[in-house]
Write a protein that binds this DNA or RNA. Structure first.
Lengths: 123, 123
DNA sequence: TGTTCATATGAACATCTATTCATTTGTTTA
DNA sequence: TAAACAAATGAATAGATGTTCATATGAACA
């Protein structure tokens, strides 16, 4: 499967500065543009400390907004804004009970995504 | 493992607006602040379409900077800047061959991280 | 119904990030 | 050694993102 890139490069690059065939072949194998945007958006959710903290908290148990805020020592507003993002990406769900709204993880394997990240960080 | 949150909330919230015990218990279980920052930084790398595209390209095979740029129809400079980020996070490695520098994935399970992301997106 | 309380939301602001453009570095080869 | 070339880098800019502050919504209860 692996081809002799060096040779290709020597052959082609001297005259035209890039490998037309190679470029076309790989370009043809790329997933659709839209999928790649969705994928980036998905990872964007995990790319913020506040949201990661919220997810870790909810990994332990469901919680209301003010308790999350207290736990993370942040304002209710900041948490609420971030919960909206998590909600939009379907990472959390919620249920109302009187004045209080309880948030919890929407998906069981959110924990495994976080774990895989930690795994990579610890070599 | 799951406790009766509703009851706890009813008991405590009326008087003090939050659950001191609960908050302390969960706060004590959080991973260290620094780990959470590292984790966010890790996911940040995948949170950009250009970097995802580069990783997908390198998933097929190693490539020089100008070919990556041609494949993605972007400038050499933009790609080079992003490769620096990927390099700093140890996601890509490179080898020099004359004037050309070939980049490749540093780690075999980068593909599985991307796959897990896609999996989640497709429900 | 009016007040209280938990949460949501909008605007403003500060910070961060990705790309571009111009230039530099470092290697090859004429 | 000078020219050509691949890649890297720095400064500038435009756009995105997270938090704060003030306010709105919507449910409970007096």
């Amino acid at each position: 499967m692996k081809r002799n890139i060096e040779k290709e490069h020597a052959d082609v690059c001297e005259s035209v500065h890039h490998h037309d065939e190679l470029v076309e072949r790989i370009a043809g194998r790329m997933p659709p543009e839209e999928d790649l945007y969705d994928l980036a958006d998905f990872f964007k959710v995990f790319a913020d400390t506040t949201r990661i903290k919220i997810l870790y908290v909810l990994l332990c148990q469901e919680m209301c907004v003010c308790d999350i805020a207290d736990t993370l020592k942040m304002t209710q507003s900041a948490i609420s804004h971030q919960l909206r993002v998590l909600k939009q990406m379907d990472l959390v769900k919620f249920r109302r009970e009187g004045k209080t709204i309880f948030y919890s993880l929407a998906d069981d394997h959110i924990g495994s995504i976080l774990s895989q990240g930690l795994e990579h960080i610890n070599e």
